[in-house]
Simulated assay, not measured.
Amino acid sequence: MSSVVTGKVIRFDEVRGYGFVAPDDGTEDVFLHVNDLQCDKRLIAPGVRVRFAAEEGDRGLKASRVSLAGQRPEGDCDEEAGDVLSAEELSGELTEAVLADVPSLTGQQLVAVRRSFLELARKHDWIAE
């Protein structure tokens, strides 16, 4: 029997193909294997929110049918997710875009815009921390 849950990746080794997810409900960490991903393994990194089916495996709980938390469960993460950016990368991209459109912003105004946008991005788990 399996239940669908959400959580954050706490560790993932792309080379070895495995890691662990901390479920949002606070239960024990769940083993994650690359063969159970429904998306490109390059999208899986510490801090990324995922949806998965928690199943009892030979050595404890394991995640299966793993997708990004914002995706439809049956969706292909590759086609829909795009790049996952760090807060620093997003901040740089945002700075360039805002200054290109509103070059008259002061440094203080730009910092306020970035802070607000990064808070929103963190709230909705749009960035990898």
Rank of each mutant, 00 (worst) to 15 (best):
G60S: 05
R49W: 04
E55K: 14
R114D: 06
S67W: 02
A128T: 01
A81T: 06
V4L: 06
L120G: 07
R49F: 03
Q71Y: 11
I44S: 07
S104W: 01
F20M: 06
R16Q: 15
K8R: 15
P46F: 11
V50G: 00
R72F: 06
H124L: 11
A100G: 09
H33Q: 08
V102R: 13
E55F: 06
C39K: 02
S91N: 13
E96V: 08
L68S: 00
V50P: 00
D58V: 14
M1R: 10
C39Y: 00
T95G: 06
D25K: 05
E14G: 05
I10N: 03
G57D: 13
V102N: 10
D83Q: 11
V102L: 14
E96C: 10
P23R: 13
R49K: 12
F20R: 05
E93A: 15
V84F: 03
E129I: 02
T95K: 09
S86Y: 13
G57K: 05
V113F: 13
E55R: 15
G82S: 03
K62V: 14
A69L: 03
G26P: 06
L118T: 01
D58F: 14
T95E: 14
S2T: 15
F12L: 05
G19H: 00
K8G: 00
W126P: 01
S67C: 15
S86K: 14
H124V: 01
D40A: 10
R122T: 12
F20P: 14
G26Y: 09
G60E: 10
G92K: 11
L32D: 11
R115G: 05
S91K: 15
P23V: 00
G107A: 08
R65K: 15
F52D: 12
V34H: 00
K8Q: 12
G47L: 04
R114E: 09
E88W: 12
T27H: 15
L61Y: 12
A81Q: 13
D78A: 07
G92S: 11
S64P: 04
V66M: 04
L90Q: 03
Y18R: 00
V9I: 10
V48E: 04
D24W: 04
F20E: 08
F12Q: 00
F117H: 05
V50I: 14
L99C: 07
Q109S: 04
L110Q: 01
E79S: 07
L120F: 11
E56I: 10
V15K: 15
E14T: 13
L68G: 02
T95C: 05
R72V: 03
E56R: 13
T6S: 12
D58P: 08
A54M: 15
Y18Q: 08
A54E: 14
D83T: 08
R65C: 09
E28T: 06
F20I: 03
H124S: 11
V84Q: 00
F52N: 03
L85F: 13
E96P: 01
Q108Y: 12
R42W: 03
A54D: 13
G26N: 12
T106E: 10
P23S: 08
T95N: 07
G17T: 02
